[in-house]
């Protein structure tokens, strides 16, 4: 399940138990996440799901489900594209 995977990535960064994270958790507020943690979250999600997250979209991630929805949308867009075009790694590297 997408949510579980995102929760695991998040839990890994802020070092808490993934089971404590809920879809409606406002993670930045609740866990006092720093900007650098958010950047890590973005990078790790991109690697895990092989997608591109645009930097100007990041400020819209408030609840865990916001990220999940975003990834879902990207994955369905990618499904329509030829393979390995998913994460355009040249973007941010």
């Amino acid at each position: 399940m997408l949510f579980k995977k995102v929760a695991e990535i998040l839990a890994d960064i802020i070092e808490i138990d993934a089971d404590d994270i809920e879809p409606e958790t406002e993670f930045i507020k609740e866990y006092g996440m720093r900007a650098i943690d958010v950047a890590k979250l973005v990078i790790n999600c991109e690697k895990k799901f092989k997608i591109t997250i645009h930097d100007e979209d990041v400020h819209g991630f408030k609840r865990v489900n916001d990220i999940v929805d975003y990834i879902e949308e990207k994955l369905s867009e990618n499904a329509a594209l030829p393979s390995d075009k998913g994460r355009e790694s040249w973007y941010y590297k």
């Binding site: 900007a35 650098i36 958010v38 950047a39 890590k40 973005v42 990078i43 645009h54 930097d55 100007e56 990041v58 400020h59 941010y92």
Partner: peptide, 20 residues
């Protein structure tokens, strides 16, 4: 040790200001 993350963080911050 965190060069990639810090660079990304800066990009996110400036992009957020830009899109706003």
């Amino acid at each position: 040790f965190e060069a990639e993350e810090v660079a990304r963080m800066l990009s996110i911050l400036e992009s957020t200001a830009l899109i706003k």
